[in-house]
Amino acid sequence: MTDELKSPPPGGPAEAAGPPTAPPIPAVTPPAQKQNDAPSLKPAPKPSVKPEPWVSPLVEALQERFPGAVSDCLIFRGQPYFSVRGEELIAVAEFLTSGEGGSYVFLTDLTAVDYPKREKRFEIVYQLYSFARNDRLRMKVLAADGEKVPSVTGVWAGANWLEREVYDLFGVVFDGHPDLKRILLPDGWTGHPLRKDYDILRQDTAWVRANLKIESGQ
């Protein structure tokens, strides 16, 4: 790895081979590649339109360890996802980061989706990545309005701002977050804009008037 930094002419071997006027690099093994390119021109196999059940050793391990906590294990376009009960979230997260659980040590993203008609309207979505497996996993936690979700900042430090953002825009409270406050909107703002019942033209008129000294921020 270090040789990358030390090699005298920076850049790849192909560049170093000659002056820039040299003929461009030949394509990589053309005959084999051609076949790969070709099928996309033909009508592709009809893509599936529905998520399918996801069966894998990881699901089995999870269900065995946390009976009843894991549900809705689905896969769509090769992307597996499952739901987990809020109470077991931290335990599941810790299991997933361990080597046994696939070492999903990298929290790519944390966000939420609002389904106002459901009983538990918020779906908190964790996008996980494992360097060891080069694999992504999506974990979901359902939460009703006002229900607290345990914070995963202890497991993935990077969740800090992401949880604040979800709190800011959805109003989901994360239990155990070190510094839960608004991040994108001003501190005194009322309302959570990414909720479905928050209209796109709505704003905190009182705040706008008090702080910007104008009638409307639109």
């Binding site: 790895m1 270090t2 990358e4 930094l5 790849g12 192909a14 690099i25 990589v28 590649q33 790969n36």
Partner: peptide, 10 residues
């Protein structure tokens, strides 16, 4: 299908 290196720091 392309060749390239991923440079890293130390």
């Amino acid at each position: 299908k392309v060749e390239f290196d991923v440079p890293i720091g130390e």
